[in-house]
Design a protein around this nucleic acid. Structure first.
Length: 493
RNA sequence: CGGGGUAUAGCGCAGUUGGUAGCGUUCCUGGUUUGGGACCAGGCGGUCGCGUGUUCGAGUCACGCUGCCCCGACCA
């Protein structure tokens, strides 16, 4: 075990391999025995649940309600919106039959050819179509609007190459789908949800993000505008961490969702959709972790404090138990999640390493020595600093420490990102520097041709046109043609 | 769908010119340990990916099939 974990030091050498091993060793997830699918293990799922509950609360504060729509979508629904079907057709899993039967040799099952469906069903890659087919029945009058629905569910996209959390055939996410009476209201909603995603990423995940709007080629299939948050991983690559789409009237028209407005005139409904997925787990891992394993922001850690006793005999353990009971109760009373690990089947050194691997923010260690002195050893996961301090007021200290760590890992991530964002006006320079990662702010002439050329020659893509960036006109880095603004270019996951 | 690998214990691997299955680790039991991933002793665990063939005899040789991994195209 010790030997294996040391391999995590390859973070700087092979980031992808390091990431994969960390996900497995920290007990977050593993590859399933089903192509491209993932098993999320209890510890990984506990983090996801925490993210879910916080996000869900943020949505509800803006009037969003949860609902649930079917997993299976009739094939014909998908083809109603031309761009949408074009975008997803290549990665859809299709249900063609509804029954199996025993084979001729009686040692297995085969698909019963007699049970072929008249119309194939698609396993949802996203739910715009089935939801707008439903909205058609709900929306007759402007009085029914807006409709603000969200669903927590799984979707399936048959990706060629998969990676735990970042890209799997099946993944968990939330997808919000709203319907509005006016264009302005829908656009406002799309932007609002992006703001919520950005706030969640920065405040809770401690992951700084760049907010912006996608170029036409990177846009969601069927959207008029796609807003995005882009995070920078420790290898300098970008990770698209959440998107919010302004869909215009595309789906309203495709599914004939018309309502009578205040002037008694028929009008098509305006739409948005927005989602974040278990990919956020990948962002969390790749933003903060180090060679000792996971580093979790206290706000999302399923377990914030672990207490480990060190003892030579039962009397010592008894004495420590009594001391710790009070601390545990006090911490819990302060809303801090804490575990006292006095299991005697693991040695202290093993526990230390294991809890570090899992990213538990604070570790308290109490031994016979501490009992005598009335002290405790406190270790913080982000800096790995150890400090021996008095047991008096330890609870308040832990509370302050958790807050400080949340700030500290965010600041560390911001500093790292800011140190790797560059303005660049020379394509040759860009080509040589993009290899080392980082975000590049470059002038772009706005054409898909230039965008494609950059991708072809450097594997980098236009991540977004950032909102919060003071823009001045210039000339395109590649073609020298006039440019209205700088765009964010990076290699991405 | 192209190009290249690989398949032997839960995991990681060895297995010589064909002779009947081995190492490390995990796991279980007992003991000694416990302030940074303990040690000793014992034990459980394998129709060698599937099929056919050659042979007295196949993990090993031949042919066929299948799964998986890596590199491309595709993508949150």
């Amino acid at each position: 075990m010790a030997k294996e974990l040391k391999d995590l030091t390859k973070r700087s050498v092979n980031y992808s391999q390091w990431y994969n091993e960390l996900v497995v060793k920290a007990d977050l997830a593993e590859q399933a025995d089903v192509r491209g699918c993932m098993v999320i293990k209890p510890y990984g799922y506990a983090i996801w649940e925490k993210m879910q509950s916080i996000l869900d609360g943020m949505f509800k504060e803006t009037g969003v309600q949860n609902a649930y729509f079917p997993l299976l979508i009739p094939k014909s629904f998908l083809s109603r919106e031309a761009e949408h079907v074009e975008g997803f057709a290549k990665e859809c899993a299709v249900v063609t039959h509804y029954r199996l039967k025993t084979n001729d040799t009686k040692d297995g099952v085969v698909v019963d050819p007699a049970a072929k469906l008249d119309e194939e069903l698609i396993i949802r890659p996203t739910s715009e179509t089935i939801i707008w087919n439903t909205y058609k029945n709900w929306i007759k009058s402007y009085r029914a609007l807006p409709i603000l629905c969200n669903q927590w569910c799984n979707v399936m996209r048959w990706e060629m190459r998969t990676r735990l959390f970042l890209r799997t055939s099946e993944f968990l996410w939330q997808e919000g789908h709203t319907a509005h009476a006016t264009r302005e209201e829908a656009e406002e909603r799309a932007k609002l949800m992006l703001k919520i995603y950005a706030e969640f990423a920065e405040k809770y995940m401690a992951v700084p993000v760049v907010q912006g709007v996608k170029s036409e080629t990177e846009r969601f299939a069927g959207a008029l505008d796609t807003y995005t948050i882009e995070a920078m991983m420790q290898d300098g690559k970008a990770l698209q961490s959440g998107t919010s789409h302004f869909l215009g009237q595309n789906f309203g028209k495709a599914f004939d969702v018309q309502f009578l407005n205040k002037d008694n005139k028929p009008e098509y409904a305006w739409a948005t959709s927005w989602g974040v997925s278990t990919r956020l787990m990948g962002a969390l891992i790749m933003t903060h972790s180090d060679d000792n394993g996971l580093v979790l922001p206290p706000a999302l850690a399923p377990l914030q404090v672990v207490i480990v006793p060190i003892y030579k005999n039962d009397e010592q353990l008894q004495a420590i138990n009594e001391k710790v009971d009070g601390i545990v109760a006090n911490l819990k009373g302060m809303g801090i999640s804490v575990k006292y690990d006095n299991a005697d089947n693991k040695r202290p050194g093993f526990k230390f390493a294991d809890y570090e691997l899992k990213g538990i923010p604070v570790r308290l260690v109490i031994g016979a020595r501490d009992l005598e002195n009335g002290t405790v050893e406190v270790m913080r996961r982000d800096t790995l600093e150890k400090e021996t301090r008095s047991l008096d007021g330890i609870e308040e200290h832990v509370k302050a420490l958790l807050d400080d760590m949340q700030q500290n890992i965010y600041k560390k991530a911001v500093d790292f990102r800011d140190a790797h964002i560059y303005e660049c006006d020379d394509y040759e320079e860009f080509k040589s520097r993009i290899k080392d990662g980082g975000f590049f702010l470059c002038h772009w002439d706005g054409t898909a041709e230039t965008e494609a050329r950059i991708k072809e020659e450097t594997q980098a893509t236009i991540r977004c046109v950032p909102f919060a960036y003071e823009q001045t006109p210039g000339v395109d880095m590649v073609t020298g043609k006039p440019s209205k603004c700088r765009v964010l270019i990076a290699r991405a996951y």
